[in-house]
Design a protein around this nucleic acid. Sequence first.
DNA 1: CCGAAGTGGAGGTATGCTCTCCTCTTCGAC
DNA 2: GTCGAAGAGGAGAGCATACCTCCACTTCGG
Lengths: 216, 216
Amino acid sequence: MSAIRPLRADAERNRARILAAAAEIFAERGLDVSLDDIAAHAGVGVGTVYRRFPDKDALIEALFEEKIDAVVALADEALEIEDPWEGFTTFMRGMCRMQAADRGFKDALLARDRGRERMAAARERIAPRATKLLARAQEAGVIRSDLGPFDVPMLNLCVGLIADRTRDVAPDYWERVLTIIIDGISAQGPTTPMPVETLDREAFTEAMASPRRRRS
Amino acid sequence: MSAIRPLRADAERNRARILAAAAEIFAERGLDVSLDDIAAHAGVGVGTVYRRFPDKDALIEALFEEKIDAVVALADEALEIEDPWEGFTTFMRGMCRMQAADRGFKDALLARDRGRERMAAARERIAPRATKLLARAQEAGVIRSDLGPFDVPMLNLCVGLIADRTRDVAPDYWERVLTIIIDGISAQGPTTPMPVETLDREAFTEAMASPRRRRS
DNA sequence: CCGAAGTGGAGGTATGCTCTCCTCTTCGAC
DNA sequence: GTCGAAGAGGAGAGCATACCTCCACTTCGG
């Protein structure tokens, strides 16, 4: 069944409106908004949304695949910058900017459940590039050598949180926090020795997934 | 009415068990746990909890007043340390440690609604001391001068988030992030100029309160 | 020994979500 | 134009998850 028979013109138009509304609302308010909200914003009924996308996750998937591509592209661009410090900070800054601009994107990277697969796929593409950016900068001696690859996304998380909290009142404020963090990972000044070990892969994965509600 | 007639022995015992259970569960899982959970953990029925505390907020209040006292005490101790750098970092580290050890405490500082009053009262006691700690360190030239008083709790927030996410898999991991942040606010090495202004009081207050769910 | 204090936990009430169902509307091929 | 199929809408079913109440029963202690 179902060769990809083209949609009727009105259906195609509505599909586009749904995607546009979803992109806007997800970006502004994260993935926790209801589909009713999105449908209302798109000017269609919920039924129409569910006719086009089997469930909420499919809608998210349709929107965020290309976001991941953008991250990969960002990493590749950063790798082409010759100066290792510039390369790394460009990547870091770009990641933070994306998360600050799109709260839904940030949520998608952290979600549990089906988001976990999405996340795993994304990480598989991003991690090698990020690791290379970090290693290059560390070999050049511009980033503290005790920083682990899994520390980087944790620092990203920090900036993302601040961006969420200040988005409405000071949309660029996150850049201050990022500035402090970047100065903190630089090897230019003196660095305080790390008091504890970094995360291993398993601990990191667990930490990135949203905390599961514990029963009892 | 109601001179504080002493409770019956069993009632007093249950009250203590409720407080103990609440302290433990709030610390571990934050304020979002249900009173049913706490009652079960205390080995009593929910009805018993509500007989002793008019509502959930009263229970929280009973537990966290003394926590605020502890923060104030921490700040006062830090102010007695002669070295301004030691003083400030002791305070900062202590705050982070408290938040890492007690998720409920962290939530209580951020909650909206009635928590807002609690927060306001807490901040009124803490802010002057924290500001003094920061100013002293900045005058001594050991902390970057472009750091504002409202930046400090934002950085605390970062560490609190990381502590939440890694509590189960690496309970001390937050110390790495704090180390980076402390190095980032130090004036020992070169500092990148801040790209944007800090928050004003109003923006800060709004940012600290949990984001309100927007309607429509 | 018995009245008052205390207890437990099922369930009332509220909220807010995802997704279904079915009637009515609109498109567009012929 | 016609008409069958595709699409649209949105009330509401179903589910989950809280807070808090109510009242028949139990326990304390004077």
